[in-house]
Design a binder for these strands. Structure first.
Lengths: 124, 124
DNA sequence: CGTATTAATTGCGGCTCCGAAACAAAGGGG
DNA sequence: CCCCTTTGTTTCGGAGCCGCAATTAATACG
């Protein structure tokens, strides 16, 4: 089979191609000076934009396995960048609801495009 | 045909799946406490392990679009982690040759496995 | 009511990173 | 041999993130 067990299994994604994808996307982001977000912050942002609302500080902290201050400060930073917004829950004013923004959606969409584009590279 | 333009084109990689992949990998790394490397550092490490040697500080800085101190410091950090090694070029002692290590190879390999594993998730 | 519990934020000390510039070491040319 | 260029490192000042612990605000409950 000469395929070494990859490329024909499920995803057609060999380790070598996976690493090249990671490298290419990182290169695009670093060269573009878009690398402002920590891996944690990126994780938080993606969770907000991928999973179904509502999102709270407590919920995100538990789901991602980090402490609450990490979430709070990440929201500060990303809020200043315009990527997310905070709102107090009217029902229970202790809770903070994290909301998406247009700029945040654009940011996430741009990341997705970068990934897809490089995932196609070197493909037939 | 009902595939919405994706999934059958080149990579079978829709934007949604690309984002989920990024999210899942980041989650694995953050939860595992392996998120020690900056995006820049990760880029440097992958370049060292993917592109053909020899690698120099100057070469990496030019290729990745960052300043030389960034490379020097990243090598300090990753050197302390045992992921790379430095050696002076015997031919031209101004140059520093960056070399791979067993631990570095294992680290990169583990990342590749994580990516491939999550790329397969949700796949048929 | 008054106290305990829960949610989120903030203060503090420590660590790392960054960019620009200064610095040391090595090579090349006249 | 001296000077200029190249390579990499270090210094300096500034900024950000982290974890832990204390704090503020709101709710639940006896």
């Amino acid at each position: 089979m000469a395929l070494r067990g990859y490329a024909s299994v499920k995803s057609g994604f060999s380790p070598a191609r996976a690493l090249k994808l990671w490298h290419d996307v990182a290169l695009t982001r670093v060269r573009g000076g878009i690398g402002d977000l920590t891996e944690r912050q990126m994780l938080i942002l993606l969770t907000i934009y991928l999973e179904t609302p509502p999102h709270t500080v407590r919920g995100l902290a538990a789901k991602l396995g980090v402490t609450k201050p990490v979430i709070t400060r990440a929201l500060d930073t990303m809020g200043a960048m315009g990527l997310v917004t905070r709102k107090r829950d009217p029902a229970d004013k202790r809770n903070v609801i994290i909301q998406r923004t247009v700029d945040g959606a654009l940011y996430v969409e741009a990341l997705a495009e970068t990934i897809v584009k490089h995932a196609d590279d070197g493909r037939a």
